[in-house]
């Protein structure tokens, strides 16, 4: 018995090496960061753009309220992080509220009180703006990825997809999440699934990408399903529409511009 364990370990190591080698042979051509970057390019245009996002929150399987947001996004040429301006359309009680999400500079504006309130990155996770932010984040800018292996997992339509499995750690304090697990389809670089963790190791959100269609010249995911891992009865579906390239001046990314952000 005492001899069997080392022998088992040696045999297992050989077998594992063989199994992993199949995946790594292909991975040598692409590093984890390159896979991330390729997937980022699929998810978001490089040029400034705007879109409309519609969210439906499900509680216990039943739809409870819809939110609609206008999102303006622009990539910072230096940091390659996206900066967002968000204008609330629905629900009616939040209509006209706005948020500036620019790295650590986060402001929330309520036209009813005319008040601009500075919020923390953690508060960005409260409410729908957080979801818009998840989907325009450039993961390659904020996270350092390692290749955990190759896996065939099912996408949101329950179709098998051969994916890179990336394990990503926050590379800067600007990263919203401490750790992200990410699955990217090998053949297309399409993002398939992500899992977001807090610094305490708690799984916070599970995200599936779906609804791939051509938007602004590239086939992108236009829908997502987000499962609240803390309370799995909460599921949010999200649809992006009305993609448009739009000139977004740098001056827009400051607190005093928020009241001026028009809904055209």
């Amino acid at each position: 018995m005492s001899e069997a364990v080392p022998r088992l370990a040696r045999r297992l190591a050989v077998l594992l090496a063989l199994v992993l080698a199949c995946g790594q042979a292909t991975a040598q051509a692409q590093t984890a960061q390159e896979i991330l970057a390729a997937s980022d390019r699929i998810r978001n245009p490089h040029e400034p753009f705007r879109l409309t996002s519609s969210l439906v929150e499900f509680v216990g399987g039943k739809p409870r309220g819809q939110s609609v947001l206008f999102v303006y996004a622009k990539e910072d040429p230096t940091t390659h992080r996206f900066r967002n301006l968000v204008r609330y359309v629905e629900p009616p009680r939040d209509a006209g509220k706005m948020a500036l999400l620019d790295n650590h500079v986060l402001w929330f504006y309520d036209p009813a009180s005319k008040a601009s309130v500075r919020i923390s990155p953690q508060q960005r996770l409260i409410g729908q703006a957080s979801i818009g932010d998840i989907l325009t984040v450039n993961l390659a800018a904020d996270y350092t990825g390692t290749l955990a292996g190759t896996e065939t997992i099912q996408d949101a339509a329950r179709q098998d997809k051969l994916c890179w499995h990336l394990d990503m750690a926050a590379a800067t304090d600007l990263a919203t999440y401490f750790r992200v697990e990410y699955w990217v389809e090998q053949k297309t670089s399409f993002p398939i699934k992500a899992k977001f963790y807090s610094d305490s190791g708690r799984l916070l959100k599970i995200l599936y990408y779906r609804g791939f269609s051509e938007q602004l010249g590239v086939i992108r995911p236009t829908e997502a399903v987000i499962i609240d891992a803390v309370d799995t009865a909460l599921v949010t579906t999200l649809k992006f529409s009305d993609y448009k390239f739009q000139e977004i001046p740098e001056a827009w990314f400051q607190r005093d511009y928020l009241p001026r952000l028009r809904a055209d």
């Binding site: 969210l55 399987g61 819809q66 599921v235 649809k239 529409s241």
Partner: peptide, 17 residues
């Protein structure tokens, strides 16, 4: 994890007004 997605969420949200 896919089992956590409710059947009703299989549909995309309605188009924006």
């Amino acid at each position: 994890d896919l089992d956590l997605i409710p059947e009703a969420a299989g549909q995309a949200p309605e188009a924006v007004s």
